[in-house]
Design a binder for these strands. Structure first.
Lengths: 224, 224, 224, 224
DNA sequence: AATGAATGAGGCTTCATTCAT
DNA sequence: TATGAATGAAGCCTCATTCAT
C-alpha cells in the first residue's frame, strides 16, 4: 500500500510538474528521518535503553508519529538494519568483480578504503548495533552475516583466488587470508569506537599501509 | 549489604567448634552463583533485557535475595566484569614474560591457545557483554580496554619485540603485528558466537595453524 | 487523491446539465452511511472497542471524514440510537391504537411479528447496544426506556385493557401480562444473538404459537 | 504453583496454631478482593471504560499489585466470570433435583426467589457484564450460556416435566414454559438496573405472585 | 539470610481528534 | 467535501527496588 501510495503521488507529480505539498514530501522522507534518528540514538544508548520518544524527538516528530511509519520499536530496528545493510551488501558484491590487473594493488586499496571508511562512527554504528542486538534477535545477526560478512569474505576470497591464479599470491587458503585482512581492521574500529581507545594511533592511511605491507609479505608469491 | 557480609565473616572467625548452619555455607558462595547466573543471562538476552528476576531464578534464589549481595542490577554487571576480567588480565601480564627461547614457536602456541579458548562460549561471553554495554557504561569499556586489550597487545608486542631483537622477526611495527595476530581470532569468534555462523569451518587447531603460518611468513626474518 | 476524485465528479456533473456534483449527493447520504457502519461495528465489538477508524473504513471514507458529519464518537452513538429508535417508537405508539375486534388474534399476531422481527440481528443490535452503553450514558438508557420500552408496554397494556373490557381477557394486571408476553421473546433473542446459542430451536413462527398459546390460556376469560 | 504455595502455608498454619502473618493472609484474599473491585467497577463503567487503576484503587492496592494476581485486564474479566458463575451453576443444577411433592408450590417459590434475588444489583451485575462483553469475548458468552442459562432452563424443564407427569401441569412444551417463567423476570431486572426505570412497581414478592399466578393459570391441568 | 508481597516510575502503544492542503 | 499527516492524552503492562516478616 505504501508502494501504491507512492506511485499515485508520482503520477500526480508528473502531471502537475514539480509542486507537491510540503507535508506529502515529508511523509515520504519521514521513514528515513526516523531511521536516521534511530541509528543515532541506538548507537548512543543501545536499543533497549533508547525510548521511542528519544527517536521521535530526534526525528522532530511526536511519539505517536513514529507509529505512523513503523509498527513497533522492534520494526524500527529491523527497518534500520535492512536499510543500512542493503548498500553495503551491494558494494561487497561489486567488490568481488573488482579484481583489476594488479591484485596486490587492488587488495591494498580496498583495505585502505575500509580502514578509512570504518573510522567513520556512522559507518561503524551498524555492525556495532547488530552485534549488540543479535542475542535477542538472532535473525538480525544472521541477516547481517549472510549479506555483509559472508559477501565480504567471498569478495576477498575471489580477489585472492584471482591473485593466486595470476601467480601474484602464494596458494594460501582464501578464507584464512580474508580473515587476516579484515580482522585487524575491525579490531581497531572496536578499539576506537567501542572501548574508548584514544587514537594516539597513526592515521588510518598509514595504519593500512603497515597492515597491508605485513600481510602482503605473507601473501606474495615472491617474498621481498 | 556491606554490613551483612561483614558480620558473616566475623562469625566465620568463630568457626572452630561452633555451629555453622548449612545455609551459611551457601551464603559465601551466593555472590559467585549470582554472577554466574548473571553472565549466562546477560549473554543470552543482553543486560537490559535481562530482568533481575531472571538472574535470581537461574541462581536459585528469590528476586529479593539478589539484593542482599548486590545493591543494584548495575552493580551485578560491574561485579561480573570485574570478576571475569581479573584472571584474564593476570594471564595477559604473565604472557608478556613468557618469551621463551623460540619466539616463533611461542607466538604460534599462544595464538593456537587463544583460538581454542575463545571457541568456548563462556569465555567469549565477557568481551561480548562488554562490547554491548560499553555504550552506556563507558568506564566498563575503558576498564576492559586497559586491563585486557592493552595488556594483551602489550604482551604480544613484547613477544614480538623480543623476537625482533633476537633476529627471529623482521623489524615490523609491534602493534600492527599484534593486531594482525589477534584480529582474525576475534573475527572468527564473532562469526561463530554472535552471528550464528555454522562452523563448517576447520577445527580451531587447524585454523590456528593456517593463520599463524600465513602471519609468520610476513613476520619471519627469513622467508621459508 | 481528493483532486482526482473531484475531477471525476465534475465530469459527472456535466452529464446532467445542471451542476450538482455527485459528491454532494453522497454528502447527503453520508451521515446515514456512517451510522450504518457504526451500528454494524458497535454491534460486533461494542462501542468502546470500536475505533472511529473502523467505522470510517466500513463507511468507505477516511477517518477525518467522519468528523465532517459528527462532532465526536459519542455523537455517532447518540445519533445512531436516535435514528434507530424513532421508527420503533412510532410503531409502538401505532400499536396502541391497533386493537381490532379480536384482541386475542391481535395480540397473537403482534407477538408472532415481534418474534420474527427480532430474529433479525440488525434489529436486535439496537437494544443490545443500548444495554451495553447504558451504564456509561444513562440518558441513552432512559431515552430507550421512555420511547421504546414504556411505549411498548403501554401499547400492550392498552391492548390488554381493551381485551379485558371486551370480556375477552380475565382482569389481570396489564403490566404483568405485558411483561409475560415480551420477556420470553427477548430472552430467546439474547440466547440466540448474544450467547451464541445454536438455534436447534423451532422456527420463530412455531415458537410464537407455543408461547402465545401458553399465555392465552392464562389470559382468556374462558379456559379453552 | 499457587496450589503449592497455599499448601505450604496451610501446613505452616497447622504447625503454629492460628497465627499467620497479616500479609500472607492478604495474599490469599487479594484475588477475591480484586475480583470484587472489578465487578463493581465493570458494572459501573463497563469493561472497556474501566481502567486497571480503578480496580486497583477500589481493591486498595497499587496498579502493579493487580498484576501479581492476574496476567492482564482480560484475565481479571475471565476470572471474575468464572468465579461468579460457578456457584450459580451449582445452584441451578441443585434446582433440577428440588422437585418436591407440590410442583406448583415449588415453581412458585423458585420464581419468587429469583425475582427477589435478581433485584440485588450485585447479582444482576454478572449477566449484565456477560451480555456487554460477549461480543468481544464470545467464549464468555458461551460459558455463561452453558453453565447458567442452559442449566437453568434444564432445571425448570425438569421441574415442569415432573409436574406434568404428576398431572399437576398440562402437557406443555417445557422449554417454552421455562422461558415464559424466566423471561419476565429478566425483563424487569433490566428495566430496573439497566434502563433506569424507577421502581414505581410493586415489590418483588407481589410481582412474583402476579407473575406466577398468571403463568399457573396457563399451566395447571385444571383451569381454576 | 531469605523471601513473598508490594509499588513507583516509566516505557510502549493506541486512539479520538485536529490541521493543512 | 475530503483526506493524509500529525499529536496529546491516556491506558496497559513491566520491572528494579523496598519492606515486613
Amino acid at each position: 500500500m505504501g508502494a501504491a501510495r507512492r506511485s499515485r503521488e508520482e503520477r500526480a507529480g508528473e502531471r502537475t510538474g514539480t509542486r507537491r505539498p510540503r507535508w506529502r514530501r515529508r511523509a515520504e522522507e519521514r521513514p528515513d528521518e526516523i531511521l536516521d534518528a534511530a541509528l543515532a540514538e541506538f548507537d548512543e544508548r543501545g536499543f533497549d535503553a533508547t525510548r521511542v520518544e528519544d527517536v521521535a524527538a530526534r526525528a522532530g516528530i511526536s511519539k505517536a508519529g513514529v507509529y505512523l511509519y513503523f509498527d513497533s520499536k522492534e520494526e524500527i530496528l529491523r527497518g534500520l538494519v535492512e536499510r543500512e545493510i542493503a548498500p553495503v551488501a551491494r558494494r561487497m558484491r561489486a567488490l568481488a568483480e573488482a579484481g583489476g590487473d594488479d591484485p596486490v594493488a587492488t587488495l591494498g586499496a580496498i583495505v585502505a578504503a575500509m580502514m578509512t571508511l570504518i573510522e567513520n562512527p556512522r559507518v561503524f554504528a551498524v555492525p556495532r548495533l547488530v552485534l549488540s542486538v543479535s542475542g535477542r534477535f538472532p535473525e538480525i545477526g544472521v541477516h547481517y552475516r549472510k549479506n555483509v560478512v559472508e559477501e565480504g569474505l567471498a569478495a576477498f576470497s575471489a580477489l585472492l583466488a584471482a591473485g593466486i591464479e595470476k601467480g601474484a599470491f602464494r596458494p594460501v587458503d582464501p578464507t584464512t587470508a580474508a580473515r587476516a585482512m579484515i580482522g585487524p581492521i575491525l579490531i581497531h574500529a572496536m578499539w576506537t569506537h567501542v572501548l574508548g581507545g584514544e587514537t594516539g594511533d597513526a592515521p588510518p592511511a598509514e595504519r593500512a599501509r603497515a597492515h597491508v605491507d605485513l600481510l602482503m609479505r605473507g601473501l606474495r608469491a615472491q617474498a621481498a
